[in-house]
Nucleic acid binder design. Structure first.
Lengths: 202, 202, 202, 202
DNA sequence: TATGAATGAGTTTTCATTCAT
DNA sequence: TATGAATGAAAACTCATTCAT
């Protein structure tokens, strides 16, 4: 998966921070190179150009955040012996910390919502795959937590869950998570209310 | 409110489209000027610089979208004689069409989530005011639709509503509204489920 | 014909020398700007880019050298009262001096023979028009000097004349005219021998 | 003569095509290396630098085209038993095909007329030697075909012949040989007319 | 012999801004 | 109010060359 040189990895590590903070257009290769401890021209020994670097960073971000997502749902499945847990909750619970820790996540959200025009297609394709994976995870988890739900309702809750995730993302992007707790609690409340209601169709 | 000349208004009308499509960094004053039928230097007869133009456009967008929001909630209040309506639904219902019609809304969402670094403060302040107004509208409407709710719950639903609005915004920004209907339905469903549950504390 | 500003004219005057000495690829806009008394970026107030500047200079060269050519043949026609003159001789006689005097001619020959790859078509089209005009001039002059020649022979001498002109051009380009006199004399001798022979078919 | 390694020969073979098509300035060592199946840096294991490579290719071209020239005149001498042939005709007859076949000839003509500025002297010296050899060949052949010509006239025809050769070269360079036949026929006609006239001084 | 990495100098081009007119 | 001209700064990128491996 990672056949890059140490220098290239270092460049990517620097670049993901730059891109996540300034975006594609406002990031300069000079700055990235300087921060990576080399001259601007040296970048071209490792990447064909700005786009190629950006797409490499994007691929890294997809891989890393997919791994994080997978780990969250794996942990959730493992911890669910007690069973009281709500489907998808662990991923949401860890999101704020993850956002603070991972430049890849910060980069990914910024890039997915407002991709640089020339790379719109590649970015869209990649991010959609991540969302599809999230949806699969949630459906699987929901099937475990609430086995009695009809397929139609499962689909509905999956849509709602993805919507809630996006909503939390926005809070992170916009306010850096200042009011994340409240929004998280509120959305989670209405989701669990609805699930509780669906569980007892009496 | 509008003390600008006709030329300045025209420039703003062109600029809002440019900024909404390319963002601050990738928009060039040359292009804006050309599309406004003048030379780049002439812009400086109307605006102090790129930032000033951007902030003027931003103020326009706030004003326009606040007016739209006010109208939605006014209409909702007027139509609510029957009473079946859920609080804040009209605003959400009209959102997709508004996004298609109003470059100001497209500009506003892009700018609010990922503002140009030097203008982060101004943008944040302005957009938060808009959100606060939205929250007030919703609380008022909810108070009318469900007068029995305790204040704590009202606050919770307000948070959830704002979160839902952001989630729909993301769909519009990200996918242009392709899957907006499903997300809208799903989130609205869990919200109304929760409200229904809260209404009958039996 | 010349709607350019004084600065633009000056830039072209500088550029034609640069291009004629170093060719398209080895000419730098920095150098041209410096020699024109301005900064590099200022060139773009006058020309859309390197190609546009080059094509403007090329158009100038075509115009100037066509005018020179026209003048030569006009003078020849005027001086031909005595009649001893050979068709097209004045243009060839003046060529060496012209090459020394006119950067446009030096530019033109270099460009016509080895145009920059991206502009091959434009250059080819323009230069062919100049050659066609030269051919017309020569045919007209030959018709005056040797009215009895059959059309087939006129065509043949026109081809030979153009070939001789190119041969002299090569001498100018290659050696700067060092051995021009000898070549000129030799080619002119065989041309006049052939014409003399054709004149007396006895 | 050829003390180069197989790799170096391969590089030269690639380079001569590049240089003949794009010229010195617009040829990049990267491209040449890639087309030779190696990396740019590897070229420096074979050549001291771009100039050295260019001069090596130039030496190749001189050698090859001199051999071709020698062969043409040797064949002409061998075939001339009948005697009707005009001096130097075989070389001219074969020129178009040679130009199509030999990248070395295409390279040589381009380089001889417009050499890269830093190598002007070396190129000039080498090419002049080739021309001198051509002149010797022609003089020898002319002495065989027309033994009665006075030395003065021989010199004149030699100049004319070199001039005609250059003129055909220009046609090849400029138009790729499109109208070569006509020019060839025309110049050859006036040359043979003049020779015929000189042969019968009656 | 071959190469990955690095680099200084250079390229064309774009941009926001200023200023005299 | 509008603009042509100019410009400093910066952009992405290319190139020939060097060097350790």
């Amino acid at each position: 998966m990672k056949k890059r040189s140490a220098s290239a990895d270092n460049i990517c590590a620097v670049a993901v921070v730059h891109f996540s903070e300034h975006g594609y257009d406002a990031s300069s290769l000079s700055d990235i190179a300087a921060q990576a401890g080399m001259r601007k021209a040296s970048l071209y020994s490792h990447f064909a150009g700005k786009d190629a670097l950006f797409l490499d960073v994007f691929a890294d971000a997809l891989e890393e955040e997919q791994a994080f997502m997978d780990a969250c749902f794996a942990d959730e499945a493992a911890l669910a012996t007690a069973g009281g847990q709500l489907a998808g909750s662990l991923y949401c619970d860890r999101m704020a910390q993850r956002y603070a820790d991972s430049a890849h996540l910060r980069f990914l959200l910024r890039t997915a919502y407002l991709p640089p025009a020339p790379l719109r297609v590649e970015v869209g394709t990649g991010y959609e795959a991540l969302l599809a994976q999230l949806q699969r995870h949630y459906v699987a988890s929901l099937g475990r937590c609430a086995p009695a739900l009809p397929p139609q309702r499962i689909e509905l809750y999956a849509q709602a869950y993805l919507g809630i995730v996006d909503s939390l993302h926005v809070e992170l992007i916009y306010a850096g998570g200042a009011a994340l707790q409240q929004r998280h609690a509120a959305l989670w409340q209405i989701l669990s209310d609805s699930l509780a209601m669906a569980a007892q169709p009496a």
